[in-house]
Amino acid sequence: MTLTQRFMKFGMGVGIGLVFIAMAFGPRAFSCNYFPNARVLDEAYSKRLSFSPEAQAFLKAESLDSVFLKKQLFAKSKVDFDKSKKDQVPCREYYATYESKDKTKNYEFTFDVCKEDSKLVSINKK
């Protein structure tokens, strides 16, 4: 057996092994947030999200949609843990601020995180 044949057989073995590995350990829905800010925002949006009438009116007036909420508001905001009531029962209340990169959209909002759902209580322009 020549050296090129050995490399070809080795490459075939590695290829077959990679296919089995991909099937066994394929894509998974897994995310890991290490910092408290990211954990709180992720927990709030991963649960069923409802809106107070005040928040619904503001979102409609500003023409903000659910894509903006998920990709911007609940992903790139800063939670103020000093103003938040994180030990409140049955729902923890958090205060957060959002500032866009171009400084045109600045929002302050309050949301509750309960056991099974979360609620956007209020949102205001900064």
Rank of each mutant, 00 (worst) to 15 (best):
27 P>S: 11
29 A>P: 03
30 F>K: 13
31 S>K: 13
31 S>H: 14
31 S>V: 08
31 S>D: 10
32 C>K: 08
33 N>C: 07
33 N>H: 13
34 Y>H: 10
35 F>P: 00
35 F>M: 09
37 N>A: 02
38 A>M: 07
38 A>G: 12
39 R>H: 04
39 R>E: 13
41 L>F: 05
41 L>N: 09
42 D>S: 14
44 A>N: 06
46 S>I: 08
46 S>R: 15
46 S>L: 11
47 K>C: 02
48 R>W: 13
48 R>P: 03
49 L>I: 05
51 F>G: 04
51 F>M: 10
53 P>D: 11
54 E>Y: 05
55 A>M: 13
56 Q>T: 12
57 A>T: 15
60 K>S: 11
60 K>H: 09
61 A>S: 08
62 E>H: 07
62 E>G: 11
63 S>K: 14
64 L>K: 11
66 S>A: 13
66 S>N: 14
66 S>R: 15
67 V>Y: 10
67 V>W: 14
68 F>E: 09
68 F>A: 07
68 F>Y: 14
69 L>F: 06
69 L>E: 00
69 L>P: 02
71 K>V: 06
71 K>L: 07
71 K>R: 15
71 K>Q: 11
72 Q>F: 10
72 Q>W: 06
72 Q>Y: 13
72 Q>M: 10
75 A>W: 03
77 S>P: 04
78 K>F: 05
78 K>C: 02
78 K>T: 14
79 V>W: 00
79 V>H: 01
81 F>I: 09
82 D>M: 06
82 D>W: 06
82 D>G: 05
82 D>N: 09
84 S>Q: 09
85 K>L: 08
85 K>R: 15
86 K>W: 10
86 K>N: 13
86 K>Y: 07
86 K>T: 12
88 Q>Y: 12
88 Q>A: 10
88 Q>R: 10
89 V>I: 08
90 P>H: 04
90 P>I: 01
90 P>N: 10
91 C>H: 12
91 C>F: 07
92 R>K: 13
93 E>L: 15
93 E>C: 06
93 E>G: 02
93 E>Q: 14
94 Y>L: 05
94 Y>K: 01
94 Y>E: 02
95 Y>N: 06
97 T>D: 04
98 Y>T: 02
100 S>L: 01
100 S>P: 01
101 K>C: 00
103 K>I: 00
104 T>F: 06
104 T>I: 12
105 K>R: 11
106 N>L: 11
106 N>K: 15
110 T>S: 09
110 T>N: 06
110 T>D: 03
113 V>E: 00
113 V>T: 05
115 K>F: 07
117 D>A: 10
120 L>E: 02
120 L>T: 04
121 V>M: 15
121 V>F: 13
